[in-house]
Design a protein around this nucleic acid. Structure first.
Length: 302
DNA sequence: GGTTCTCGTTCCGAAAATCA
DNA sequence: TGATTTTCGGAACGAGAACC
């Protein structure tokens, strides 16, 4: 004979009566009326198919079967307590996971710095960091493989929201000890004739850089193209030439090259990318705040 | 929109426990 | 010992959700 389905509320009432010894006190602990508890107990007895309480002199006395059942209920409630605790930890961001993807320009220095601080503030959060092209970063966020992306290019995608970070202006880097390293800021005219290192033509940043020099009527001596901004830093550090790079990479390159402000401003925008079709997890939302703060601080100090 | 079901309420009475 | 309090549970009913 199949036992009909037990209900959580009936189990709660049973547990409350076992713990508080009377139906009235059980009802108080559950914040319901006493008859409601009596009815829940009666329903539970009907469903389990045996008597849980002997009515002795108007009082309830648990049967042996009730005591056995109570042991099992207590074990289950330990599990419920753990679920409650886990929910509290998730709400308080002391437990959970965060999957971050970034363009190389941010995945090698900025994001590790933000993540290290974030993990320190939120111990218990498991974090993974992937470095990919901007297109792949957006794909991973769109498909739900990553919670947050940070790209150095605008990649339109119907399944993602992009937030442009402010004040991202390129910096000029020159070898340490270079004649231009003593200057406070540089312009296209200062770089006339200098060996120049830049991104490939397919990059948005390359087009923006080229436009400034065309508008200034300055012809550069373009010697090397490189995909990664960190590679450009290495080339400049090895005196292969000078370059314009994004402010984040520039900020972390100050030990290796001289970083100079450049006018007119060449914008190189960064974007925080999140999934548009589902709510941003609490942890990811807090991480986005940390990224905004760190990004703003890094580009302001360089 | 009407019906049914679930879960809760208040009201009330019966029985036992407590107290002066 | 009688009055009062406590406890349990039945009856009636309401609110809200689910279903047709």
């Amino acid at each position: 004979m199949e036992m009909s389905e037990l209900k959580i509320r009936q189990i709660e009432a049973f547990r409350a009566v076992m713990l508080r010894h009377t139906v009235t006190r059980a009802a108080e602990s559950l914040h319901i009326s006493q008859p409601a508890v009596s009815r829940l107990i009666a329903d539970l007895e009907s469903r389990v198919g045996f008597v849980l309480f002997e009515r002795q002199q108007g009082r309830l006395a648990p049967t042996a079967e009730a005591r056995v059942l109570f042991e099992e209920v207590e074990r289950a409630f330990v599990g419920l307590d753990r679920i409650t605790q886990a929910a509290h930890q998730i709400r308080a961001m002391r437990r959970g996971s965060l999957r971050v993807a970034g363009s190389p320009a941010v995945a090698l220095d900025l994001l590790p710095a933000v993540i290290a601080r974030f993990v320190e503030q939120h111990p218990g959060i498991d974090v993974s960091l992937l470095a990919h092209s901007a297109t792949t970063v957006v794909d991973k966020v769109a498909s739900g493989q990553c919670d947050v992306g940070l790209t150095a290019e605008a990649i339109p995608h119907p399944a993602v929201k992009s937030e442009r970070l402010p004040n991202a202006v390129m910096r000029c880097i020159v070898p340490r000890g270079h004649r231009l390293a003593r200057r406070a800021s540089l312009s296209p005219y200062d770089l006339r004739g200098e060996p120049f290192v830049s991104f490939p033509h397919s990059f948005d940043a390359r087009a923006a850089i080229d436009r400034v020099f065309v508008e200034a009527g300055v012809t550069r001596n373009l010697v090397i193209e490189a995909q990664l901004s960190q590679a450009i830093v290495a080339l400049v550090a090895n005196r292969a030439g000078v370059a314009l790079i994004d402010p984040v990479t520039a900020a972390y390159a100050r030990q290796r090259v001289a970083v100079k402000r450049f006018a007119p401003a060449v914008h190189d925008h960064f974007y925080i990318v999140t999934n548009a079709s589902r709510p941003v997890p609490v942890v990811a939302d807090a991480f986005c705040d940390a990224v905004r703060e760190a990004f703003g601080r890094v580009v302001a100090e360089v």
